[in-house]
Amino acid sequence: MMNHTLKSQCKVSPGTVIAGKWHLNKYTIIKELGFGANGVVYLAKHNHTHVALKMSDNGMSITSEVNVLKSFAKVQGPLTLGPSLLDVDDWQSNRGRISFYVMEYIQGPDFLTFLQQKGKSWTSVLFLQLLNDLDKLHESGWVFGDLKPENLIVTGPPSRMRCIDVGGTTIQGRAIKEFTEFYDRGYWGLGSRKAEPSYDLFAVAMIMINTAYPNRFSKTTGGISQLREAVRQKPELAAWEKVIFKSLQGHYRSAKEMRTDLLSLMIDKKIPDPPKRAQEANVDNQKKKPSLHPQGSQPITRQNYRKGRKKSGWKEFFFIAVVLGLFYAWYTFNKLL
């Protein structure tokens, strides 16, 4: 929690104009978005565009977070894991000089809220994308650290996971700077707080568990035994059990390995069906095309005809339903990833 002095130092009212001392850009404060150990984040407006502005009297903290955002920009392309950095400056207020930086305002529900609104069928797709982005982050030499649902925002369409609050992001090999106990392997007695890929992957597994326990749960015995029991008490976690346990015990060397295992489970049909929209499209397509004709069907159906497989009755209907389901699952995953 931020100390009271820092909170007071950085407290500004809506309508306040923050004028940069060096770059001379002006930002009008709209409202506070949140605060933590190292600063306060505000929603602000600049040239009719909404931005997120973080201020702190700790210049070293600002510099560290700015370096993280610059690193994100170098390795992750136009759709970054974290917000884009827009400006870095100082503001000379009547309470002294305050350092601040301005970043892209990422708007959308947090991860768990998104699942409540859209359904848990989106979960695996978003985890695949998150693991892909984490792999790029780890390859660049960083660990996110304080990975939790509150720091994961789902934007779109198309729906995509973005991370906010990079204050806990740490150079690999150092001690984790910030963490939240439920997602911290040190808290559960399952590893150190050294910044390495497996630290983030443990947190991903705990977020998976969190989807079945929205209010989380407290540590009693701790260790893998308590977490294993928690997983096995929730049928919806059964499909991910293999991936969760390997991650909790630090058996993955990279996010890519964890992503490969998760994708394999999805291909093997151990993961729930794709998002509802794809299911509805499948049903509609079957209503419109109760029988298949080579000239009006999808490519995979034409292949079926070319092979000359003549099915009859319920066997043909079953085969068609399976093929269409696979086609729309493939289409949905490629559209979202």
Rank of each mutant, 00 (worst) to 15 (best):
N3P: 08
S13I: 14
A19G: 05
I30A: 11
A44S: 10
H46F: 12
S61T: 07
T63A: 15
S64G: 14
E65L: 11
S71L: 11
V75A: 15
L79M: 13
L79H: 12
D89G: 00
D90S: 12
R97D: 05
Y101F: 13
V102M: 07
G108H: 09
G108E: 06
Q116I: 08
Q117Y: 11
G119W: 04
G119M: 04
F127G: 01
L130Q: 01
L134N: 09
L134F: 14
D135H: 13
D146F: 15
S159L: 13
S159P: 06
C163A: 15
V166C: 13
V166Y: 04
T169R: 03
T169E: 05
T169F: 06
A175G: 11
I176S: 07
K177A: 13
E178L: 15
T180F: 09
W188G: 05
G189F: 09
L190G: 01
G191I: 01
R193G: 14
P197D: 10
D200W: 06
D200C: 13
L201V: 11
I209N: 00
Y213F: 07
R216E: 03
F217W: 01
G223L: 04
L237T: 02
L237W: 02
A238I: 01
I244C: 01
H251P: 01
Y252R: 04
A255L: 06
P275S: 04
K276A: 05
Q295M: 10
P299I: 11
T301Y: 04
R302D: 04
R302L: 10
K307S: 10
F317C: 00
A321P: 03
F327N: 07
F333Q: 11
N334Q: 13
L337T: 12
